[in-house]
Design a binder for these strands. Structure first.
Lengths: 147, 147
DNA sequence: AGTCTTCCTACCAACTAAATAGGAATACTG
DNA sequence: CAGTATTCCTATTTAGTTGGTAGGAAGACT
């Protein structure tokens, strides 16, 4: 599994948003505090203009909502316990398992290699089990992969 | 998880070697029939000169042994039931899970993102469980991921 | 000697990821 | 209604990897 810089940054940014919103005293469901892109970039060492493109992806995927203007910024659309690592990965990355760029479930094998497709599907399922069960809230409370 | 062309070709080539050796009547442990690179390339539609580099990797990893000359070719060093998909992947690819190119277990996180490292390790373990339990023999008998 | 085959190195082309720059559109402030 | 802060969006540059090719050198058999 290859975690791209985009995916890595996206997760770190989401965690930073969740943390900032939670720590400023408003643990309510959706809204929370608005966090500026610049402060996310600084707290996690992410190039600002690159981060902005990532935040855009996250917004389009419905994980963040944003507000422009002087007191603008970003906030989670759902509480951290309802956003999984898999949600974030899929928002920026597309398919999680791919064979030479094409999704694992449509790899064209023939002859003696036919069984390979099932292996990739099994791998995909195993990965999904981990990343879909782990939420941002889990990560923030530092028990990363509670069974 | 991204399966590169190299990894994909390597697996298909190994399966083709295992199949050719098994079907010519010598199901003995090590040796088997020697299969030429050219016939592997043809049976699985792999560019020959690209395949040769891959076969070299597999040989250096101890999965194949080769013989030059007129009746040369490649053969498995172990029976198909003792070679896992993971063995082949690691032979051509290095680490299975990597974050931005560096191995998952040494990703440098700080602050609120500390927990991410454990997620990648969990993913790595989940993938390993699948690819290390599936052998070439499993794939050849078409019951890909028997639990 | 003469083939046949693996072995090895160097190289090229295309693509993707990563990062940058610059400008709209939008929202609040006074 | 100007002015400013900020998100939003697109185009471009840069660097690295991947996929693939070419051309021999080394070994093995006839």
């Amino acid at each position: 599994m290859y975690i791209s810089a985009r995916a890595d940054y996206a997760l770190r940014a989401m965690l930073a948003v969740a943390d900032a919103a939670g720590s400023t005293g408003d643990p309510a469901a959706g809204g929370g505090e608005l966090v500026k892109a610049a402060s996310l970039a600084e707290s996690q060492d992410i190039p600002l203009s690159f981060l902005q493109g990532i935040l855009l992806d996250l917004r389009r995927a419905g994980l963040l909502h944003s507000h422009r203007g002087t007191e603008g910024g970003y906030a989670l659309t759902r509480p951290p316990a309802e956003i999984s690592v898999g949600d974030v990965l899929r928002a920026v990355g597309g398919a999680i398992t791919s064979v030479r760029g094409i999704p694992a479930d449509r790899a064209g094998y023939h002859g003696v290699a036919t069984g390979l497709r099932d292996v990739w599907l099994a791998v995909d399922g195993a990965i999904a089990l981990v990343v879909d069960r782990t939420t941002l809230a889990d990560l923030l409370s530092d028990r990363a992969t509670a069974p």
